[in-house]
Design a protein around this nucleic acid. Structure first.
Lengths: 231, 231, 231, 231
DNA sequence: TATGAATGAGATTTCATTCAT
DNA sequence: GATGAATGAAATCTCATTCAT
């Protein structure tokens, strides 16, 4: 146990060091030598635990994505509605990236471009996670929460693309201090997307889209301001 | 003239080769040797035209971004309203990436992460382009087209992030054939976003947000079907 | 200890090989590849020990000059008079160069012209050594051994320039065999210089230069020792 | 003639540029490209005139040494005595180096170490010049001006070595301004060497070094001129 | 298990030199 | 005669990886 614990500690230290250095310099510019220095062991020791430099790279999401997914699963089990589940899933993404910016940078900039990574169990986990997002959207469409004609893949791309963009941009900013809290953007963001795909009856209010003539009649009835055109 | 033309041809062939290979293998894994082979010249010739490997990398967007921006500027000069301008700008992005997938991959995966690229004229052009998007959004907020309380930076991240995500994902798909036409997704995508940030009175029709009780009354009055399709 | 000894041996073998090859071909024409072949190791091993080719160059005098200076210091501590000290210092130069002709060639032809070498600890040692020579000369002037009006820098240039010239010339001779022993030239050389800068009263007594007949007369008159040639 | 003059001008400009750049950077670090830029012509043009980079190097002393030797020869024809001729020869060296410091650096640092240069006509001229120095010394020994037992080669090494050392050292000084005029050191220098190798009877009369009281006595006895100051 | 030491393989870059025009 | 363009050949240096201890 002590032995195992010690080993586990050493392995983790290597992974932590690799995460930081891969994220900061990019995989090809990072060197095993620097990682070993940061991890406080010899280069050869790294090769004891991980067969190649790329194996070490893939070991990072292996560990982290599993941790994250378990937690998300637990949370999801309490939520029913499409919107709620969707929000929970996105919150999990954002929290993971927010709490571990190096991991965000690594996944979004190094790993996603790597074709070999796509054959990895870690990537399977990521895919599963993305698939649950898709399922949410489909569920929302099916149950009338979301419009029938919206393209679930497009919605997912919007959701993931936006979050990724926000974190990539933050990673690229010169000054790491004063980086805004992306978590706070999540609800406004979700509201915009949902606002764009919700059916009229969704949520507490109703959204009606009417032709002009209808609207005029309606206006008379309800004394609402007339619909003005833009440009 | 003929002489110059020949030179220009050679330089262009090098840039084309570099674009393809950088996009496919990533900058650090690409070798000058392979590029020279593909361009049909010697390695030394590449160094004759471009001082370093990185200079060659930066020469690619230098050339392409300038071409693209001029065209966009021309188109923009004909459009007034915020939504129209915004759509034109996004269409320019999508067309550029769609017509040149290698360039899309290069910019989105290799260049955006490169801190030295951020000091480049080509990146300045890209920033300018992104700024115009921001201006559109602000204009829309100012003139009442978009809701007052929406965060322009967030909107922009949604617009750019989604488009980038779509093209990155397409680049990563194993089979380049049967890749969907992302241009076709643009209008649905824009409508969702705009749908999420438009004020009630925007567009040709009228959008009414009603409390439930009102809606029920309204439904009875107009016998309109509930939750209709978007625009 | 054994481990350290092995390493030390390898490092020394590299330095020895570098010394020979740098001296024979000149620094820029020498290649790491050839040095590694001569040292019996790989090129990469050389870079393991010495960061760059130039670092390897500078490591040579670093090692040798330290060894030499310590010994000279010991010897100097036993000698008082300006002439004796000066002779000891020059002898140290000559012995060092004589015993290690490659080192002589390297220092005199490769290193002295290198502006970066001038910022090196090894060069500081060399400067210190040259400074002690200057001190000797000044001491001799101050205590009346040498003429008051002689320029110490000129004297030093004579001393060093001559020695350097002798060794450079020898290095350039085609046949390394039958190279004369420069040590044997040292005393005649020193005597000429001292003969040129000594005051009349220097040394034990009076030095008279007379024609023989005068000298005889003079001897009788003064009972002075006979007109001698310079000692 | 005009054509030839133009060509000559171009060739000279190349040689001048090469001289400056070889002297400043050293032969191996100098590039044909930089020389062509400084000479205001293309690289290929240099190869029109000079077959290889080394040929260009050797063309420099070819031109300069011939010019210098002719002048020296003219001057020597007016001088008889060994000391005078020797002084004239050394003055020629010093003036040449003083008036053309780049040439000094080139010859002393780049060319003297080059074994192929030793087979060159330019080097033959330099050897001839050095041989005349030797002849002077031998003449001085033969006619009793210099001591019988002095080694002519050693004397020559002293003369040349000192001058070379002075110019090399000056070349290495960081600040080119405020460089002392080495010509002024020549006479003191020569006097020291001659003072060290002259026979007693050399020069105008007898040189006595005496203590004052002895000198006074002696003066009375011999009516010799009073004990004079040094040289 | 851990590592110091060593290296094979390969990448970028430089430049003297050539040649068609 | 002059040169712009092109390149062969080579050199320095880096690093992932191996292996004896």
């Amino acid at each position: 146990m002590a032995e195992n614990g010690k080993t586990r500690g050493r392995k983790d230290r290597i992974i932590d060091a690799a995460l930081r250095i891969f994220a900061e310099k990019g995989f090809p510019n990072a060197t095993i030598s620097e990682i070993s220095r940061e991890a406080g062991c010899s280069e050869a020791t790294i090769y004891e635990y991980f067969g190649t430099k790329e194996d070490l790279l893939f070991a990072i999401p292996e560990k982290i994505s599993n941790e994250s997914i378990e937690e998300t699963d637990r949370a999801l089990s309490y939520i029913r509605g499409a919107e709620g589940r969707l929000r929970a899933l996105l919150l999990a993404y954002v929290r993971l990236y927010q709490s571990n910016p190096h991991y965000a940078a690594l996944v979004l900039l190094q790993l996603m471009n790597n074709k070999r990574f796509r054959k990895t169990p870690a990537h399977a986990a990521i895919r599963r996670s993305a698939h649950r997002l898709l399922d949410c959207i489909r569920q929302g469409i099916a149950d009338g929460t979301f419009k029938k004609d919206c393209n679930p893949y497009l919605i997912r791309s919007m959701l993931l693309g936006t979050i990724e963009h926000l974190f990539i941009q933050r990673h690229m900013q010169a000054e790491p201090q004063r980086q805004s809290d992306i978590t706070e953007l999540l609800d406004p963001f979700i509201e915009i997307v949902l606002g764009g795909i919700r059916t009229a009856s969704a949520d507490k209010g109703v959204t009606l889209y009417l032709r002009r003539e209808d609207a005029r009649t309606l206006g008379e009835l309800l004394r609402a301001p007339e619909g003005q055109t833009q440009d």
